[in-house]
Design a protein around this nucleic acid. Structure first.
Lengths: 204, 204
DNA sequence: CCGGTAAAAGAACGAACGTTCATTTAATTG
DNA sequence: CAATTAAATGAACGTTCGTTCTTTTACCGG
């Protein structure tokens, strides 16, 4: 056989990324072979190389696309006239909403940094740092305005992010708690964690 | 060559675990070959199989030993006569202290669950659940006694654990913050996060 | 001190790996 | 409609993988 009826390059490339994502999330980058990806796409191994230069580039593409999407989506959230507490609430809701439907991307972006070769690693690490900075900045503003009471902005930011990233490890769409409830709970928990006085206001 | 002068089985087996740990933490289970481990131990590949039945068993051993150690160490902490807030403080300090010197174990136990075959997976998962239950129990007691003000004990427990697990991803022994300071900060942050009124008491 | 066992080396196994290549056929373009 | 390009197959490349096996040597109990 040769070229298949109706096959289009751009669709195959998209399919490669789409199929590789859950495989890598489940088994890890090193444990997923190009043959497994090809099988999932429904194509022979060799055909992958018509669309992607290497296995490593698939990973870079996945992570890079995810981080770009994440940062762009946050940029689209308007927090200009908000108080730091409102900003943090927005961020928490944003992060949970965005990531809960992209569990595989989040998992990969967090876990497979070590699988990246130096060049790709630097590119992705920069984006990750930018995302961390978002939280740090909000917390610092809250410190300045006195709305937050926190010992160390960096530690607090990492605590907030760690807590949020963990959601993906246990959230189940059909679980006991709805997405909305989880958001509410995390907003309350994390606002308290940065020393925002929620007295009576957020007792959900 | 054959058997080396001074070689003892028990020492080699210990060395296998010891050397495999950082390798797997850095590159991931699938990406580490038996030959890499053998090289690190200073031995030929084949010799590994005098001490370990398979690569998979090395992983099971590492994770199982770590979780057993973690649970046993926590059991040794006496929290009998404490208030829930004191218990949570003890737990936070314990977790950071114990895990910060075992970053590789923690990372592996968290990340490589997916690399375990069903049997090993069940064994380890049970231990992990037991550890989560420790936090849930403390929070539930705090809810009952009214010392904590938290919407959902499960969510709060996962938030606390996520936050703590994250420490390992950014802590550096020669970093800006000492272990003691980090403990203090996290105690304050996490007590606040469960709605414990720290008013004036923990302004570190 | 001798026989058995423990611990190593090193070669070898088949299978799977990422990647390349020649070839075939569908789609597109001039 | 002919020529070119795009997209696939399937075989093959050289490596590396986890594991097994034979052989050699050190250690140890009688």
């Amino acid at each position: 056989m040769a070229r298949l009826k109706g096959s289009v390059g751009s669709r195959t490339k998209a399919s490669i990324q789409e199929k590789a994502l859950p495989l890598i999330a489940q088994y890890g980058y090193a444990a997923v072979s190009m043959r497994m990806i090809a099988d999932a796409v429904g194509v022979n191994v060799g055909a992958l190389y018509n669309h992607v230069p290497s296995k490593q580039q698939i990973l870079v593409l996945l992570m890079s696309d995810h981080m770009d999407g994440l940062l762009a989506a946050w940029d689209a959230v308007d927090i200009e006239d908000m108080t730091p507490a409102q900003m943090l609430e927005s961020f928490v809701r944003f992060h949970i909403s965005y990531n809960i439907t992209r569990a595989d991307d989040v998992f990969i972006s967090f876990m497979e940094l070590r699988s990246l070769e130096p060049e790709g690693h630097n590119r992705i690490e920069k984006k990750r740092k930018a995302y961390e900075e978002v939280v740090r900045k909000i917390i610092r503003e809250g410190q300045k305005s006195g709305q937050f009471n926190v010992e160390d902005a960096h530690v607090a930011a990492m605590s907030v992010l760690g807590s949020l990233i963990g959601v993906n490890t246990w959230y189940r769409a059909r679980g006991r708690l709805s997405k909305a409830k989880i958001e509410d709970y995390y907003v309350a928990i994390l606002l308290r964690s940065v020393g925002y006085d929620t007295e009576g206001k957020t007792d959900v």
